[in-house]
Amino acid sequence: MKYNRPRSLAQYFEQAGAVPAAGVTVLAGGTDLMPGYENGRPLPVHLLDIKALPELRGIVERDHEIEIGALTTIEQIRANSAINTLFTALVEAADQFAGPQIRHRATIGGNLVNASPAGDTLPPLYAYGAVVKITGPAGERTVPLEEFITGPGQTTLAPGELVQSVILPKLRHRSLFYKLGLRQAMAIAVVNFAITYAVKNGAFSHLAIAAGAVAPKVVLLDTLTEALVSRGATIDDAMHLVDNDISPIDDLRAPADYRRTVLKNVLAYTLRNLLGGGNGR
């Protein structure tokens, strides 16, 4: 196995270009990669450690957006004041992400590229309408997150390309995040979701819901939100529409039915509370 730690993007492209693209494995926080090797995944041919790339670092706030470098750790997101002010759901997701040791190593770029249906930062990023900035030998491009992730572990990232940052448009809406893990920490989500919302006259004037771990990729529950926002449906009447947007599976963490039930239970409860309905049951 060969290991390199490039010091700039230019150096990265040079080193990555020197080997067949299929042979390159990118290492950032390593919190997904390393357990894989422990579990018997063959070691990589060429490991490129991108932790020292300055171009992938930093959180930049602009008038209408905030740009988060791919190497930003989950802990840095938790601690950042601009993100805390504007993107509550993302901070809540970071709060419930694994445990302290992993939060200090794992990066937001890694969570995007890993493209797990249960990744905890993904539902907030979907709900915020995040855009992924990609850099490659041919230059930069941006892709909406929804298009960037194509399936479990699958993205549109071409060989040689890296995620440089993720860009969040500043919203006036409030947001929240919910996660059900089967224990209080160090648990992979059985269901998670993020909501951005605005309430006017006892009804939602804006509502976006992104749910994780209930389909091959994070899904926006558009059928439900459309019914609630545009057609004035009641929460009780509309909740069954969730089934149109999700397709959970049985796995060793939980049965599909359980995921479906819990998502609807907690979502209904949460939406009722947002509308001031008090105790959701």
């Binding site: 357990p35 224990r183 160090m186 992979i188 060793l252």
Partner: peptide
């Protein structure tokens, strides 16, 4: 959890020990 004699909860992410918070 066992599948035909093979334990499929064979690591700390699938066999859920209580954490300090649990």
């Amino acid at each position: 959890l066992v599948d035909r004699g093979q334990i499929i909860t064979s690591n700390l992410s699938t066999y859920l020990l209580p954490t300090a918070l649990d």
